[in-house]
Amino acid sequence: MLAKRIIACLDVRDGRVVKGRQFAALRDAGDPVRRALRYRDEGIDEIVVLDVSATLESRLANRRTIEAIAATLDVPLTVGGGVRAIDDVARLLDAGADKVAINSAALERPELLSEAAARFGSQCIVISVDARRAGDGYTIATHSASRPHQLDPVAWSREAVERGAGEVLLTSIDRDGGREGFDLTLVRAVRDAVGVPVVASGGASTPQSFADVLLAGADAALGASIFHDGDATARDVKAACSASGIVVRP
């Protein structure tokens, strides 16, 4: 049986790990390669690297950082940041990424997802969806949450998957870096709308918060600050998950 995944996210800017709150107030959190290897040693199932200023600076994720992590890591690596075209996907895969996350560019030109899936297979194309609460529902935002859209994350996730995305990386902007627990309502809504795996992101607070969102239906749960601040390791998180009856890789 497929295990639920515990993922660590490294938001990277200028070759350093940074972390903020609601996509702002970034502070330094160390060297990405050392962080990735430490999390690997602590039992993490996957590393996600997001170059958080790439799209805003109209460039692709930093290749040297990706290469350095990819060459040493022996668990899967997903990379996002500044992917505009199919050649960008090829470049990131060639730098050692196993999966490539696409966000802003997919909303501007959804065909990018179908083209990328036709060439690389949908299993390595991730649609990254950043959502925030709006009234009774949710709306999405792009460009590191700086550009709001009217579209709701359920409809957009469904379309992105129909076009070829093989996974949804779903981030709650409201919960980002706030350590208040994942947005279970948001995760359930998107999970019920698509047939591909859904990675829940934003709000990881305690080991139990991971178990809660995995029980709510997420296929994987992602944390950043909780790991960077040393409040819990992947092993702590997995112990809490096992205690809740969730299958995780030992």
Binding site: L2, A3, E46, Q123, E167, G195
Partner: peptide
């Protein structure tokens, strides 16, 4: 024909 397709992650 797995519950989710793609089959993504760690398995035995």
């Amino acid at each position: 024909r797995t519950p989710r397709v793609p089959h993504m992650g760690w398995n035995l």
